[in-house]
């Protein structure tokens, strides 16, 4: 007998649409976080504080920097970098720390895989939630930037989908990476990957500060793609070349989701 026969005979309810099953996990996270809204809200404050400290505070020490062949105020320059790094940090935190606890300690996914959901739904559901959260934060940050006069073009609106893409790329890779973590000590590896990217992806100062060889290496790193994309959009320096960054980030999503689904399957279904 096939599933369809049983459904036809009224023996079982029609199964969940496999393409939409992952939304159930996303829904769970929404329910869980609705109660924790103050914490969700303070997430908006953190990048804002960085903007005040580094953008305005340090910006007063720096003055203008050269970007795309013209002078831009430092706070305009650094804000777009922070927009991209905030998207990365949020996505990585959600998918490594939270995911790891749920996988290894809370046994949340053991309970979920006893329901019709599949490992792929878990991976997609978590990434989707990370993106929803990230979009909320990015939107808040973009509005702040606009209010401070740190956006120079209407292209800045397109920076929001750009941050979603950055989030998706790092959430997928983070999720895949989290399945390799064995204990909390291994989070040092996460920091070891994130901190140098955060500091050296042309976030706080332009590539021109580096020796040429080093600048070339940095052009190929993941966060640099995001920073370059956001900076071009918020300053309106838009060109076809941006599509390269988009393609790079899309590839990260594809690889991350594929690896994560396979790994979750192996970890939870033996």
């Amino acid at each position: 007998m096939s599933v369809q026969d049983l459904v036809d005979h009224g023996r079982i309810a029609p199964p969940l649409d496999p393409r939409k099953r992952f939304l159930r996990l996303t829904e769970r996270n929404v329910v869980g976080y609705v109660r924790a809204w103050p914490i969700l809200l303070t997430g908006v404050v953190e990048p804002f504080l960085y903007l005040l400290s580094i953008g305005i505070g340090v910006g007063a020490l720096v003055g203008d920097v050269t970007y795309a062949g013209r002078q831009v105020p430092y706070e305009t320059f650094v804000a777009s970098g922070m927009l991209a790094t905030a998207a990365m940090n949020g996505a990585v935190f959600d998918t490594t720390f939270n995911f790891f606890i749920r996988l290894r300690y809370a046994k949340l996914y053991d309970a979920i895989l006893a329901t019709p959901l599949e490992p792929r739904d878990v991976a997609l559901g978590e990434v989707t939630w990370a993106l929803m959260r990230g979009t909320f934060y990015s939107a808040a940050f973009l509005v702040t930037m606009a209010l401070f006069g740190l956006t120079e073009s209407w292209w800045a609106v397109a920076a929001l989908p750009a941050t979603v893409l950055i989030g998706a790329a790092f959430a997928s890779i983070g999720l895949a990476g989290a399945t390799y973590l064995r204990s909390f000590l291994d989070f040092d590896f996460v920091n070891l990957a994130i901190t140098p990217m955060f500091l050296f992806s042309a976030t706080f100062f332009p590539l021109s500060q580096y020796p040429d060889a080093l600048a070339t290496v940095i052009r190929f790193t993941p966060l640099y793609q995001g920073v370059a994309l956001c900076r071009a959009l918020t300053t309106g320096e838009v060109g076809v070349g941006l599509l390269v960054h988009v393609a790079y980030l899309l590839a990260m999503v594809a690889v991350g989701v594929a690896v994560a689904s396979r790994r979750i399957d192996g970890l939870l279904r033996s």
């Binding site: 309810a13 199964p15 969940l16 099953r21 159930r24 996990l25 829904e27 769970r28 329910v31 869980g32 109660r35 809370a106 949340l108 309970a111 979920i112 329901t115 019709p116 959901l117």
Partner: peptide, 18 residues
């Protein structure tokens, strides 16, 4: 699901079944 209340444990779990 220790992040949820008793009631939400029922509702959310039930939602996994569609």
């Amino acid at each position: 699901d220790t992040e949820l209340s008793v009631w939400d444990n029922f509702i959310v779990y039930g939602r996994y079944f569609g």
